[in-house]
Design a protein around this nucleic acid. Sequence first.
DNA 1: TCTGGGGTCCTAGGACCC
DNA 2: TCTGGGGTCCTAGGACCC
Length: 429
Amino acid sequence: MKERFALVDVNNFFCSAEAAFAPELKGVPLVVLSNNDGCVVSRSAEVKALQTVKMGTPWHQMQDLAKQHGIIAKSSNYELYGDMSRRTMTVIGTFVEPSDQEVYSIDESFLRLTKYPHLDGQTLGREIRAKVFLWTGMMVCCGIGFSRTQAKLANHLAKKRPQYEGVCDLTKLSRAEFDDICKTVSVNDVWGIGGRLTGHLTAMGITTVHELRCADIKRLRERFGVVLERTITELNGTPVSGLDVVEPKQQIISSRSFGSPCYDYNGLHSMVSTFIARATAKLRKQGSYAGRVCVWLETNRFREQDVQYHPAAGIRLPNPTNDIAALTNAASIVLGRLYKPGFRYAKAGVMLEELSDSAHVQGSLFGGSEPSPERQKLLTTLDRIHHRFGKNHIGVGYAGVKRVPHEMQRALMSPRYTTRWDELMEVQA
DNA sequence: TCTGGGGTCCTAGGACCC
DNA sequence: TCTGGGGTCCTAGGACCC
């Protein structure tokens, strides 16, 4: 039996999540900004229609444009988006068995339809759209194909071409119809083909999906590697990969630009400690232990007048651990090596690596040792306090105990309608 | 003044082993 | 004069994704 996949994806996800609770944001030009209110990371249909605001445009560079078109901006509200994502994915998941859904990103989900040959793609897509909209207020598009890459392509068409009305099923097309459509889509719109590859392919005279499908696959593999070969195979209707099962993360990163520049060691130390706290929380949530801690610092690369410095280094722990104090300590050692006075630091980050599901490291000279029961109790209690009161009430060293001076700016943030009792939406009778 | 954050996979090349 | 060859593991960096 031929495999069949669907990709369901929310339109303008962050903007839609904002508008779901604020009717005045519906039908108006709206953007959502990255951390620190830096860049545009989501645009409403009205902003996309202007064609002048690209993804990633710095907000401070488009003030005039915003005034001219009445563009409203919102700070990113990841607590709201995370919760709306969970709700949306749950509704999408009601159409198949759990093992046939892969939540691919915050706003996208693959469904494997192979087991449900009786489901007509068009009908299913329309039903998903209706149910998701009714239950969450979010509008999705649905693409269906014989591989995940085809489903992605179909979703792209469903989103961009009004005649599809949000649902595109490539599996129902004849060979000739499929070829004709592929002649109208640029390689750049294919999942897995980014700017670099597009440049190289264009130079070889390959600009449309049809040309890519017909190209000499052996030659392209030799030149660009196995990834492109798989993409072409999938475009031609043979799935190379099925659904990905959710694996624990192999690395955990926490990193932020500072709300204001930082010059001194103590300031950096408090930020790095905060990042470690956040990363450790993720680590403990997935039940992993880290074997290596990396830290990096960055000056502001956009300031040409500044001397640039962006060092990075890591340290291997004697035994993998999930103990926030041990991880903070390791990060402090690395930071001590990296820090040099006299620079205008703008950003820092930490990375937990070599994650395992055990505190024991194989072949360690001294043997792995579990933290003592008392220690475990302390760590678990910390987790509970974080869970119940939020992350900013207790921490190690400088982290999170009080507002740190370089915290990010989120001047335009909306309420966290669905996750905070004191930020619930109020309705006036 | 202000320019995001968090991931994965693959490959080439060096280190090291026998 | 002439200095092996094959294999694995690790790391850094590139490309991509959302």
